[in-house]
Write a protein that binds this DNA or RNA. Structure first.
Lengths: 197, 197
DNA sequence: GTCTATAAAGGGATAGAC
DNA sequence: GTCTATCCCTTTATAGAC
């Protein structure tokens, strides 16, 4: 029987990415992926040699083209305050609409493979992080630009990385998941914290 | 044959905690834990009814000791600014000296198991988080205390959760891993950000 | 390109001896 | 309190038909 919709690698990865992001490498079986894609487990091995290869392809796919719009904001001609505000807002939007991205990165950082970490830092993070440190230096040269850059990125990322458990904490509200609300909160905290420093 | 060194729950948990921190729940088998403890897998079931219970005990064990010193700071009679500063400093110290702690928390927060998330939020995180939100409300009632509490905790945690990859980023220095330096940076950012709000 | 069937290994958990 | 032995299920991966 010929399948009505033969699956491409991209279709499989689109299903696998949120699964790996949500449960990690060992928390997702090939059967689970196959079931979600609508294939038998064996069929996956026609597209990828093994589970590791499927996982690494999913990582690469998830990282594609995420940094472009952020770098465009950083290198615009607006005031440094405006660029900070726009950067935070855009990062909130990106992470909100594709939280798998930050989850995968976080899991990768915790798995401690030095070679993969170095690759991640130099190939994916470097230019963007460099741009943020330069913006930080413009905003307030008295601060350590590295620490400030980590803080700004961390402020945004942490709100969305904790999205799964935050609803069960006291005082949780629907709006706390709204990227606009989080962006405004973070922007205020950082901008005001810098002005008086 | 009588065992020379019968194992206590605490001894088992002390072995299990770094294993779960490093590889996550599904990345660690009962056989692996048993092997590291120096027991057969079956013996573990004398101490814990199942793997879930062992894991939850490990989480509680890893967290309760830490939470105590933090809650003591939150409920002290110092000014709210002093309590914030001390809380941030203590959290930096805790997370710096015991990386398993933050790794376990982060893995748990990214985990998709709704039932376990709810249990952890209500049974383990609730009181501490409640204390932080109350402090936030004291510091500046105009801010959303929930968002501010997440931001404060996230600012600290992110610096240490990214410790593995940060050395490969531009402008990285040795001092960026010093809990005192990070604590001062975060405290300044938050306190100044609130004063002018 | 996908299927069914299956091998081989590893996982959680229990039974019963000591 | 711990052991060995075992049950039964899941997992990764392969073989071969269509």
């Amino acid at each position: 029987m010929r399948p009505l919709h033969p699956k491409s690698k991209e279709e499989i990865l689109a299903i696998a990415i949120p699964l790996f992001a949500g449960s990690g490498y060992s928390g997702v079986s090939m059967r689970t992926i196959a079931q979600n894609v609508g294939l038998s487990a064996a069929a996956l091995y026609h597209h990828f040699p093994d589970k590791q290869a499927l996982y690494l392809s999913a990582m690469a796919q998830a990282f594609v083209d995420k940094a472009d719009s952020l770098e465009k904001i950083l290198s615009s001609s607006a005031t440094s305050e405006k660029r900070l505000s726009q950067f935070i807002t855009r990062l909130c939007e990106l992470v909100h609409q594709d939280n798998d991205f930050s989850m995968l990165i976080q899991r990768e950082m915790m798995n401690g493979d030095e070679a993969r970490l170095q690759l991640l830092a130099t190939e994916i993070y470097h230019d963007l992080f460099q741009g943020v440190t330069e913006l930080c230096q413009e905003l307030n040269p008295q601060h350590d630009p590295y620490l400030l850059a980590i803080s700004i990125i961390g402020l945004v990322m942490y709100h969305f990385q904790t999205a799964a458990i935050r609803p069960y904490l006291p005082h949780s509200k629907e709006q706390h998941n709204d990227p606009q609300v989080v962006a405004r909160h973070v922007t205020n905290l950082v901008l005001l914290g810098l002005k008086t420093a």
